[in-house]
Design a protein around this nucleic acid. Sequence first.
DNA 1: GGTCGTCCTGGTCGGTTGTCCAAGTCAAGT
DNA 2: ACTTGACTTGGACAACCGACCAGGACGACC
Lengths: 218, 218
Amino acid sequence: MNRLPVAERREQLIEAALAVASRDGIDAATVRAIAAEAGVSLGVVHYCFQDKDELLRAMAHAITSQNLARSLGDLPERADLDTVVDGVIDALWTGISESRGPQLLSYELTTSSLRHAELNQVAIEQYRGQWSAVEQVLELIERTAQVGWTIPRSLVARAVVAVIDGYSLAWLVDGDGEQARAGLQGFGQFLKTLTVPVALEPDVDERAAVGAPDGATA
Amino acid sequence: MNRLPVAERREQLIEAALAVASRDGIDAATVRAIAAEAGVSLGVVHYCFQDKDELLRAMAHAITSQNLARSLGDLPERADLDTVVDGVIDALWTGISESRGPQLLSYELTTSSLRHAELNQVAIEQYRGQWSAVEQVLELIERTAQVGWTIPRSLVARAVVAVIDGYSLAWLVDGDGEQARAGLQGFGQFLKTLTVPVALEPDVDERAAVGAPDGATA
DNA sequence: GGTCGTCCTGGTCGGTTGTCCAAGTCAAGT
DNA sequence: ACTTGACTTGGACAACCGACCAGGACGACC
């Protein structure tokens, strides 16, 4: 096989691990299976990574980076609240429903991280990334539809991630994507009731919310 | 060791498997670990169960039965909507937050079921049980607070399970139980907006909802 | 008290896993 | 041409896994 500098070989192995784990589950992502998927021999893996855990951590990190990059890819123009919220939810759910394997893998990674000490940081990084990504989407909604929130934005983001997780899990189990999409759209309706229009200023930086003056966001 | 009829030994092994898997994760629930936890020798497990998978399926079934029984245990008396909804959510979250291990195990079981063909039925049974349990709780709310729903009850149940799953996952990851409780209470507020008061009849059997005349519940 | 079916024991087997290592291969620099 | 260092190879190892089995121990029933 062709020789590669260790940095590129690492990325190739990370992609191979991602492919195997997404297709066959995290338990099937053995060192041998990953090496075979990448088309390299067994020893290469431990030449590029000290542990199998280091490879899995790198794979998880790649996932969160991808998610964060993907969620910020689709940015609509100026539109009213209904259009932008429905559009964001629709794009988001389409992205999820088209990647069943990776979505399931992310839950496997979460549970594994919560059990095995050597993967401890994986889950929290995963969720910190999701929360902050959703917060950025929420900021985009604020700017696009000229609204603010009646509760702190971080709480809204947490709720969004929770609802998405819940409906995604249900969809993974029973395969009913239409019901999941409908449920998320219903949640979108609820989200709109948490907004208040904000008229002035082309860029509202912060504290666009009314009421709830005890912002405890760190 | 004392001799037991195979039926009782099976239940003991199921409990032992539940204990090991809740404490150390589903991967740690090996045949040897379960036998050691139960205080029996290795061969007993394959004497009582044909497969390890059969034992795991029995364990999963025991979990869903417990959950279903537990969720119907706490039934308040006649009260107004705010009291009963807040009370149900509080009791439900208390039950979850006091059993971190089993809660995490249920997610491990779900993902494992979705990957391994021999556990295929586990996840769907798990969720069918949860959906129907929540539906029964919703019926209890209807009777207690004299209300109906503006959308089909099954969709409400699905939303409830999804939101609980999402906040539970977040809580498992970051350990912030207070934020999870607050988020669920906020969802409870939203739930109340989906209700309509229903005045007459001591027992309203079905079709207490207004609008949405296309009931598609099978 | 002897017999028979139920239950238990502990070792063994083949297979898989992560990890390691001695040797081999290749390209670049002198 | 030769050396040096980076990269690759494939086998070996111990540990662990689920599954299996020959045999021992126990209690109930005739």
